[in-house]
Design a binder for these strands. Structure first.
Lengths: 153, 153
DNA sequence: ATGCACCTTCCAAGTATGGTAAGGTCAAGT
DNA sequence: ACTTGACCTTACCATACTTGGAAGGTGCAT
């Protein structure tokens, strides 16, 4: 199976498969004489695992850990659960922060008539006063798995 | 006023002030003979505006637009409101997506005993089935204004 | 044999921010 | 005058993930 087939079978783009290989997330597969990567169903399975973990917002580093646990037949489910709970906490924190930003903006927008006149409480709100967040946002606040994937053709 | 003073007065780091200048978000200020940037209170006001817009999750490009509206005395508040409403929609969409990821993970974690045994529904959930999101996440899904600012000393 | 789709590697961009290095400048103290 | 320390300058690197492109090789069907 060439990289293209593996890509469509796993839902991970060929580009990303090479990238995951480079950063050591997946093993380098055998090569044909011409140097083409050759994948098996097991590789596709791995890639799907990665894909799903990315979909859940795990970073590449975390997925490395998850893969380790996946392969470790003697793993303790507690270890996996801890990672999952940490991730849930982070995700919810990020979601809350975004919602707060939206709410702040909403309260400004609610006061805005939104007509042809120049008076605008939103602009005024941006102009005046203290910074809106004094809180230090958590590192890794953003959603790191921004998959700016073009629609599949 | 040197860049350091402008930074602490506006809440934008010196680093970012230079960056905003480079990308054309703020005007290049006058320089002293020694080449130091020299800021006035008006510049600080501008920078504060930028800071607040960033806090609300607007991207640099969007802030460029907002600044245009800010300076435009004949602006229609409707134009500003539309940008705000768009932003609110995006923020809420991102928040929802994050929450969905958290919920999916929660449902997996809820089934996990979290003990010393290797059986783990989370791993099993990652392993099996279809990709968790088929939806193409919106470009700019992540929170772009990750201000990973070290705690102010 | 030609063309087209696919593969390869390497390099770059974009986003917003921080870090570091190497050097110039300023103001205060000696 | 000289030193010191804080501040400034530019330039480049790193982060995390993903895409895009260039330049060239390969495989298969017509």
């Amino acid at each position: 199976m060439n990289i293209g087939e593996a890509a469509s079978a796993s839902g991970v783009s060929a580009k990303m498969i090479r990238y995951y290989e480079k950063v050591g997330l997946v093993e380098a597969p055998a090569r044909t004489d011409a140097g083409y990567r050759s994948y098996g169903s097991r590789d596709v399975h791995n890639l799907r695992f990665v894909r799903r973990a990315r979909d859940l917002g795990f970073t590449v580093d975390e997925i490395r850990d998850l893969l380790g646990l996946w392969r470790d037949q003697g793993r303790r489910s507690a270890d996996v659960k801890r990672m999952a709970l940490d991730q849930i906490r982070l995700l919810e924190q990020k979601a809350r922060h975004l919602q707060e930003m939206a709410d702040t903006l909403k309260s400004l927008a609610d006061c805005c008539t939104g007509d042809a006149r120049p008076d605008c409480p939103i602009i005024a709100g941006l102009e005046a006063g203290q910074p809106l967040t004094s809180r230090r946002p958590n590192r890794r606040f953003g959603v790191t798995n921004e998959r700016a994937v073009p629609p599949r053709r």
